[in-house]
């Protein structure tokens, strides 16, 4: 475990470690490409993605001006795809942050205190894990109304229990180790123990977990938007597909559906591979077998 921590102490060291893994390398490249696209979106031959155009520019096939053509409201599809990466990454990372925060807190408290507190918290976690996630997200999103922040909230509501469960079981094994006992003997407070002693030891688990949750959040945003629960003031890949489906002309406009589908698929596969790689390299013995 100290070795793991050592690896995590520098982000660079950890990225290097991931780079040694085939899937990790693939995931890192995809993530880097989408991050660059999201950051430099305004400079990539884009116009305002939600700006509608005149009638003659409706459903234009791909051309020099509109690289991927236009949709039924004469919006530039290329620009929508480029700006869509911002929404996916934003939802992915903010929702993951929120989920990790709540999940870790619940997991550490439950694992550390045990007894009644743990029992109650874990019953709640089990209950949430039993619920069908997508219908729950749909009903919450429908009740709360369409906005990007509601989507982030909804995603966090359904994902925190998994994190709490994973963190708790890690805390349980750490709690028994001698150094916690030792710290208690010298009179450390509960909060110091939880966040000074235990927290650093669950960081690797949290890290692996957060990659999974980013993936789930990107997926959740896409599917909610596709089902018509997206934020109408923004442009996302899922929304594009929703509009394409509702337009009734999609059989004739592959240029409208292929770019967002490809973007969603590639980004999610990239993150899935990254997640697999992270849990692989965090397994004890990975460095040894690689001779690192």
């Amino acid at each position: 475990m100290t070795k793991l921590l050592h690896g995590l102490s520098s982000v660079k060291g950890f990225v290097m470690l991931l780079w040694t893994n085939k899937m990790g390398r693939f995931g890192l490249i995809i993530f880097a490409v989408f991050a660059v696209i999201a950051i430099f979106a305004p400079f990539l031959h884009t116009v305002d993605p939600s700006a509608t155009g005149s009638c003659e520019n409706m459903l234009v096939p791909p051309c020099a001006q509109f690289w991927f053509g236009t949709d039924d409201l004469a919006r530039d599809i290329w620009s929508q795809v480029i700006y869509g990466s911002r929404i996916s990454l934003l939802v992915g990372f903010v929702a993951a942050g929120l989920t990790i925060l709540v999940g870790t807190l619940v997991g550490i408290i439950a694992g550390f205190y045990g007894g009644k507190i743990e029992e109650v918290l874990m019953r709640i976690v089990d209950f949430f894990m039993m619920l069908p996630q997508l219908p729950l997200m749909i009903i919450l999103a429908a009740v709360l109304g369409p906005s990007i922040w509601n989507i982030i909230f909804v995603v966090s509501v359904v994902s925190w229990p998994t994190t709490a469960r994973v963190v708790r079981s890690q805390v349980l094994s750490i709690r028994e180790r001698a150094f916690i006992e030792a710290s208690r003997c010298i009179g450390a407070s509960d909060s110091l123990l939880m966040f000074g002693e235990i927290f650093p030891n669950v960081v690797p688990i949290i890290f692996a977990q957060s990659v999974l949750i980013v993936t789930e959040a990107i997926y959740a945003e896409a599917v909610l938007a596709f089902l018509g629960l997206g934020d109408p003031t923004t442009v996302s890949w899922g929304m594009m597909l929703h509009f394409a489906f509702e337009s009734g002309v999609m059989s004739r406009t592959p240029n409208w559906i292929v770019p967002p589908v490809a973007s969603i698929v590639v980004l999610i596969i990239g993150f899935t591979f990254l997640g697999t790689a992270v849990s692989d390299v965090l397994k004890p013995g990975y460095r040894e077998t690689r001779g690192l």
């Binding site: 896409a222 559906i257 999610i268 596969i269």
Partner: peptide, 18 residues
């Protein structure tokens, strides 16, 4: 398997339909 599993079902549906 990992790729098929990670592709969202609605995206897979759209690809097959296309």
């Amino acid at each position: 398997a990992l790729s098929l599993y990670s592709i969202p079902a609605f995206c897979m549906g759209i690809i097959l339909m296309l």
